[in-house]
C-alpha cells in the first residue's frame, strides 16, 4: 500500500472544489472525515497518494483552493 497524505481545507466550499478539480484531472482521491489528531478546521478532508501530492497541490494552487499548507 503506497503512502498517503491527508489535505485539510479551510471550508467545505474548498474541499468540494478540490474534489471537483481532482475528478477533472483524473487523480485518485478520497473524501474522509478530518482526523481529529490533525485538525478540526473543516469536517472533511481529502486523502491522496503521496506520489501525486505535488501535482495535486499545483492544481489546488492554480485553482485558488484554500488548503492548510501548514498541516501537510
Amino acid at each position: 500500500m503506497p503512502a498517503e497524505v491527508v489535505i485539510v481545507f479551510k471550508s467545505t466550499h474548498d474541499v468540494i472544489k478540490a474534489k471537483s478539480e481532482l475528478e477533472k484531472a483524473c487523480i485518485a482521491h478520497e473524501l474522509i472525515p478530518t482526523p481529529k489528531e490533525i485538525s478540526s478546521e473543516c469536517g472533511m478532508s481529502l486523502r491522496v497518494e503521496k506520489t501525486v501530492l505535488n501535482k495535486v497541490l499545483e492544481i489546488l494552487r492554480s485553482k485558488g483552493v484554500r488548503y492548510r499548507d501548514d498541516l501537510l
Binding site: S11, T12, H13, I16, L31, I32, P33, C42, G43
Partner: peptide, 18 residues
C-alpha cells in the same frame, strides 16, 4: 446537510450547494 459531516449523503449535499 452540507459541511457538517463526512458521510456520503453530506458529501452529495455539499457538492450540490457547490
Amino acid at each position: 446537510s452540507t459541511g457538517r459531516s463526512g458521510h456520503k449523503m453530506a458529501i452529495k449535499a455539499s457538492e450540490l450547494v457547490f
